[in-house]
Design a protein around this nucleic acid. Structure first.
Length: 576
RNA sequence: ACCCCCGUAGCUCAGUGGAUAGAGCAACGGAUUUCUAAUCCGAAGGUCGCAGGUUCGAUCCCUGCCGGGGGUGCCA
């Protein structure tokens, strides 16, 4: 079986490069010559701007270069004509029959033209990674949602993805929690809401530790007992994990996020000592103030502690051991970490040390900006956190209100189901449509927007497409879309087809840039154009032939929109 | 002190080394006997933080400055 790896842009780029070669000889370096979609249809569909840059090299004018390339370009089935414009732009006009044919091919393809560039390769994705004994709040949604979307994009491109939820189940906080649990626990509250109660005792114990040195010392002792296998503390620790995972799982189910592995940091505990030994054998470790350190000043990075003066290990060591384990077990092409921006230095350090140990696997850190509240930075201790479940509940409630008023005839259970999809879709889209690297200022109205540039706008557009298809079947039972073909009778139909043909490269570029927002942007733009089409051009009332073409186009857009929203983890109800 | 992000319409944000910088919200004027008005159409809104530089061409790349956020050896 042949694996598709091309997109429209790569096809046109290769062709344009061959035209330059034909014109200026095989020895000319054409690797920098590219093709981009035009901003204005007056300038064609795609354009090549290379003539301007190369004119100096060829010691002639840009227009002369462009004219020569246009003449030398071999015929291509996709290209109707070329035009030289302005200072030396080469404008490419695609052939209508080819556009129609490719749209039909794209719509029928299971992956909708997305190239299978990951075929036969494995990627490990490390995202979400909440800490045990702490509730998930709105700050945790970004890693989960962004990571999951990047995960989905890679799967669509044919990668085997190992999504690993690297739970924070080890570390100094457990001494504090154990002390809190022993002294402050309210059993009834634990029954009611386990994580909230665990967090409460943690915060109380933490406050006491800050003020009371002897309490802090006892916390450390409990931690040491846990780390040395004390049965009682180990049992407590396991209980904390079980309680937390149960609550996390409930949220993941609502968000439709699932992992292939849930391995906490503790999974790698027995590798920590040997990891430090390995670092030592590479001559990377030096003792400083009682701690084992890797100095990275030659790489322009601050020192990294791999074993504390008390003999404990910290997260750099743990992450190094985790890489080692993942490389051994999965032989991945790359390992991708999705965390907030505060961890950039940590990842630079441990990636650097990994390379010194000879790890050649590509390691990528995808970071995103913090979530803030309009008036304050929010933190657990200030008590101004918004729990993730509260956000999701509120989203579904608002969506239900809207559906109840706009579709009063819909049965109750169905209305709830749609409200769930729309509410969760609104929350996800609000996050994914923004450039990940900017700080998000959380507001309820933005996170739960149901109109304008929002998840529900896209879902609504989809529901209308589905409705068109169903209405067609209802009113024209004798019609056969299978044997009908696409036509271009209005400029907006061609515009829509060209947008559909861009879907594969949007997915590839978004995945490579780790930016789901690029997919969101594309889908919103597509949906806007569709809405205009829908509003201004009759489908079912058009004459036979044109009617079938428009219904087919509508169906093609629906398929792409459904797949695209799927990449964002957003459902597409058939009715809203 | 140093390092990393951000600064675009009143507000929230897209955007790309290319031709006339775009959406949403808010505000203004229209459209519903019609395929779902959660929509569409129109008008309005900009020294792309400031100043230099590179380039045929810079909002985008480089340097400096100003403003905001984050980080910097024993938390993760």
């Amino acid at each position: 079986m042949q694996i598709k790896t091309e997109t429209l842009t790569t096809v046109l780029t290769a062709w344009m490069q061959s035209a330059f070669s034909a014109c200026y000889g095989e020895s000319t370096d054409v690797s920098g010559i590219g093709v981009v979609a035009t901003a204005n249809p007056a300038f064609g569909d795609y354009q090549c701007n290379a003539a301007m840059g190369l004119a100096k090299l060829f010691k002639t004018s840009p227009r002369t270069v462009a004219d020569a390339v246009v003449v030398a370009a071999p015929p291509h089935p996709a290209v109707a004509r070329l035009e030289v414009a302005g200072p030396g732009f080469i404008n490419i006009f695609l052939d209508n029959a080819w556009v129609i044919e490719q749209t039909a091919v794209l719509a029928a393809d299971a992956c909708h033209g997305v190239p299978q560039i990951g075929h036969g390769q494995t990627v490990v994705m490390d995202y979400s990674s909440p800490n045990i004994a702490k509730p998930m709040h709105i700050g945790h949604i970004r890693s989960t949602i962004i990571g999951n979307s990047i995960d989905r994009m890679h799967r669509l491109m044919g990668f085997r993805v190992i999504a690993d939820n690297h739970i924070g189940d080890w570390g100094t906080q457990f001494g504090i929690i154990i002390m809190g649990y022993r002294h402050f626990l309210d059993r009834a509250a634990l029954e009611q809401s386990p994580i909230e109660e665990l967090e409460r005792v943690y915060v109380k114990s933490y406050e006491k530790a800050k003020a009371d040195d002897s309490w802090m010392t006892q916390c450390r002792q409990e931690l040491v007992k846990l780390q040395t296998g004390d049965p009682e503390n180990t049992a407590l620790w396991k209980q904390f994990i079980a309680l937390s995972l149960g609550e996390f799982e409930r949220i993941y189910k609502r968000l439709d996020v699932c992992f292939d592995l849930v391995r906490g940091e503790s999974f790698y505990n027995d590798r920590l000592a040997s990891m430090v030994a390995l670092l030592q054998s590479h001559g990377l470790v030096r003792e400083s103030e009682g701690a084992q350190c890797v100095f990275l000043e030659d790489d322009g990075l601050p020192v990294c502690i791999v074993r504390k003066s008390d003999g404990g290990y910290n997260y750099a060591t743990s992450d190094l051991a985790t890489v080692q384990s993942r490389v051994e077990e999965f032989s991945p092409l790359k390992i991708v970490y999705i965390t907030d921006e505060r961890q950039q230095l940590h990842f630079k350090q441990f990636f650097c040390i990994s390379r010194k140990l000879g790890v050649t696997t590509r390691l990528d850190h995808v970071w995103f900006g913090l979530m803030r509240l309009p008036d304050a930075t929010f933190s657990t201790r200030q008590g101004n956190v918004i729990k993730l479940e509260h956000l999701l509940d509120e989203a579904e409630r608002r969506a239900l209100d809207l559906i109840t008023s706009s579709s009063p005839d819909m049965p109750e259970d169905r209305r709830r189901d749609v409200a769930r999809a729309v509410g969760i879709g609104a929350v996800k889209y609000a996050d994914l449509s923004q450039n990940p690297q900017t700080t998000v200022t959380f507001t309820w109205d933005k996170a739960l927007a149901l109109d304008g540039n929002s998840g529900p706008y896209l879902q609504y557009a989809y529901a209308r497409m589905a409705s068109v298809r169903d209405k067609y079947r209802e009113r024209f039972p004798e019609g056969d879309l299978e044997v009908s073909r696409l036509l271009i009778t209005e400029p907006i139909e061609r515009e829509l087809m060209l947008k559909l043909l861009r879907f594969p490269e949007v997915v590839v570029r978004a995945a490579e840039a780790y930016k789901p927002s690029m997919v969101a942007d594309y889908l919103y733009d597509l949906s806007q154009t569709y809405s205009s089409f829908y509003q201004n051009v009759p489908f079912l009332k058009a004459e036979s032939g044109i009617r079938e073409s428009r219904v087919l186009l509508c169906d093609a857009i629906a398929r792409i929109l459904r797949q695209g929203l799927g990449l964002l983890g957003i459902e597409t109800p058939e009715r809203i």
